[in-house]
């Protein structure tokens, strides 16, 4: 027993350490259930709100965008930007979808499991 470089206790110990590492890693992962609306202003994350809870969120810079989370969807409820492109996007809910207001440099992106595409050309 003494001559062996690796003893059974070493294997048990290693297994325990690996298990602890995996557990820490697992709990450190972001919760991706149901989708989260990530609000950004000029690239900076301002808020992350779950889609399950109805809420309103406002971002003001050059212009003002009022976002509304309702029934698992996000939409722009009010904007004073010149082109109203963000408002015209309508309600989004799918992972990967986003609403962008370029004049206000504001965006909201749905993050979560099951996004179909990595980008959209159009």
């Amino acid at each position: 027993m003494k001559d062996k470089l690796i003893k059974p206790s070493d294997i048990v110990f290693t297994a325990v350490i690996v298990a602890v590492c995996i557990l820490i890693w697992f709990f450190a992962l972001p919760k991706a259930q149901g989708g989260v609306a990530v609000f950004r202003l000029d690239g900076e994350i301002m808020a992350e709100l779950p889609l399950q809870e109805n809420a309103e969120y406002e971002m003001s810079a050059a212009y003002t965008n009022l976002f509304e989370i309702k029934d698992g969807c996000v939409r722009v409820a009010y904007t004073d930007c010149p082109n109203h492109q963000c408002e015209k996007t309508g309600a989004v809910s799918a992972a990967g979808a986003s609403i962008v207001c370029a004049p206000n440099r504001a965006s909201v992106t749905i993050e979560g499991e099951g996004g179909q595409v990595d980008a959209v050309t159009g």
């Binding site: 492109q85 015209k88 996007t89 309508g90 989004v92 799918a94 979808a97 986003s98 609403i99 962008v100 179909q116 595409v117 990595d118 980008a119 959209v120 050309t121 159009g122």
Partner: peptide, 30 residues
Amino acid sequence: VAVGGSVYARGGKPDGSWKVGVRDPLGSTA
């Protein structure tokens, strides 16, 4: 990298190739 609707797909993803949606011209921006 997507600069607006112009997209550059370099290499791939660990689980395959990059998937780019072609916008529905008659639908909403999403």
